[in-house]
């Protein structure tokens, strides 16, 4: 049986900040996946995100119970704006999507790394 992992899905920067505020002081290990927003068919406009998303879903099935993941969906026009908040934020300094970070640490996986199950598992299971 899959572990129960808290998974919060938000769209855009403001919702992302609110979600981090909500969970950062909890006892949960907080992660954020920055990924492209989905269309009506559940597909992302970002090809690398489509490759990574199922891998991350799979890794979450065996992640420790104290795991909380915020998935922050970013739409294409926002991402293509080089001055968007995700890129400009000192705390995030996002340079590519998909990116999976452990909030409050320097640990992150970017692009193709997010599609490698062993790397995603290492990030999620790290203490």
């Amino acid at each position: 049986m899959a572990n129960v992992v808290k998974h919060v899905k938000v769209s855009g920067f403001t919702e992302y900040l609110r979600a981090v505020q909500q969970y950062k002081d909890s006892s949960l290990h907080l992660f954020t996946l920055f990924t492209g927003s989905l269309d009506a068919d559940g597909k992302s406009w970002c090809p690398d995100c489509n490759k990574a998303d199922p891998v991350i879903e799979e890794a979450l099935n065996s992640a420790p119970e104290c795991t909380c993941v915020i998935t922050a969906y970013i739409d294409r026009p926002t991402w293509k704006d080089m001055n968007n908040n995700f890129r400009k934020s000192q705390d995030i300094q996002l340079t590519s999507i998909p990116t999976l970070i452990k909030v409050g640490t320097e640990k992150r996986l970017e692009e193709g790394q997010c599609a490698k199950l062993s790397l995603v598992q290492m990030l999620l299971e790290d203490d």
Partner: peptide, 17 residues
């Protein structure tokens, strides 16, 4: 120290990879 911690992590990713 933030730079070093980021590198510590990158080394682990590299070894796993």
């Amino acid at each position: 120290q933030n730079h070093i911690k980021a590198q510590n992590w990158k080394i682990r990713v590299d070894l796993r990879d």
